[in-house]
């Protein structure tokens, strides 16, 4: 694919683009070396942040905002890092600073809403998200969080409406599809739920929660083997996934008990052994396997 880069027109395009894109975002009067250094520091801070090195990123953004106390991007980044490090009061103060100085900074306002939710202040959160929609009626994020709030109340109708609205506004985030699927489940609409779980996975095939929950939808519709395959896939992505282990153990344990009740001890034993593969100390499987062993000894 890199062959494109040797093509002449493409080189021309590169030459045309040899402009400091950063400078075009935040116009500066004169591009100085100090300015370049500052931009380089911000890029470095963002890089550290995205790589999860939060302490190092925080130090850089703290430095930058000393010199540029009104730099909204840096304030927002610093606030976000503080939120991730559970310094929620500091985060709220920083986002609040941005919101106070910029009437249309929707990022800060969305996060102020999220921090309200974190504190359980639902009315305040709702007001923040509504404010964002007043500033930017096309803000899919605000619709998403309003959908989350409705979903938490198990108000499926409202949740579906908000998540659908977020999608209409251009969101194709896997989390929106995933939560929409859950909202459909809460309304006893398994086919729509299945569709949305599949859409989640079309975007992010490693979405373990969607894989897991789709497994139960399929299982409840009679597709037991497909469900187990999905939970196995979760374990292949994360061998420690407790939900997938629990689900696999549960369906194997249930099947084992059914076989046991029908007098099929061989099958039951095999299924309980499989149960133990997923939950090493599953009390039911251990008990019944010991019981089967005792019965086998007695019959000899």
């Amino acid at each position: 694919m890199r062959q494109l880069r040797s093509a002449f027109p493409f080189l021309l395009a590169l030459l045309v683009l040899a402009i400091p894109a950063w400078g075009t975002v935040q116009p500066v009067r004169t591009v100085t070396s100090a300015q370049e250094q500052l931009e380089s520091r911000i890029l470095q801070g963002a890089d550290l942040h995205y790589r999860g090195q939060l302490d190092a990123a925080r130090v850089i953004f703290e430095e930058v905002v000393v010199g540029q106390p009104n730099n909204e991007f840096c304030l927002n980044q610093l606030a976000l890092i503080n939120a991730k490090q559970e310094r929620f009061e500091v985060a709220a103060a920083l986002f609040g600073r941005v919101a106070a100085q910029s009437p249309d900074n929707t990022f800060a306002r969305i996060w102020l809403g999220v921090l309200h939710l974190q504190r359980g202040e639902t009315a305040e959160a709702q007001a923040r998200f509504a404010e964002v929609l007043r500033v930017d009626p096309g803000n899919a994020g605000a619709c998403y969080f309003l959908g989350v709030m409705a979903a938490v109340e198990h108000d499926g109708v409202s949740a579906v409406r908000w998540f659908r609205k977020a999608q209409e506004l251009g969101s194709d985030d896997p989390e929106t599809h995933y939560r929409l699927a859950q909202a459909f489940l809460s309304m006893d609409m398994p086919l729509n739920a299945r569709l949305e779980f599949e859409r989640t996975l079309a975007i992010n095939p490693r979405h373990t929660k969607a894989l897991h929950d789709l497994g139960w939808v399929l299982y409840n519709q009679g597709f037991g083997e497909e469900a187990k395959a999905l939970w196995q896939r979760v374990l292949s992505l994360n061998p420690d996934d407790a939900q997938a282990r629990t689900s696999l153990a549960k369906v194997h344990n249930d099947a084992a008990f059914a076989a046991y009740e029908q007098g099929n001890r061989e099958k039951a034993a095999a299924l309980w052994k499989m149960t133990l593969q997923y939950e090493h100390d599953n009390k039911a499987a251990r008990y019944y396997l010991q019981k089967l062993d005792r019965q086998a000894i007695d019959s000899e």
Binding site: A46, N76, T106
Partner: peptide, 14 residues
């Protein structure tokens, strides 16, 4: 990182 940062920067506001 640059592209990701630009997304963050540009989508701070409508």
């Amino acid at each position: 990182t640059y592209s990701r940062m630009m997304v963050d920067l540009l989508t701070q506001r409508p």
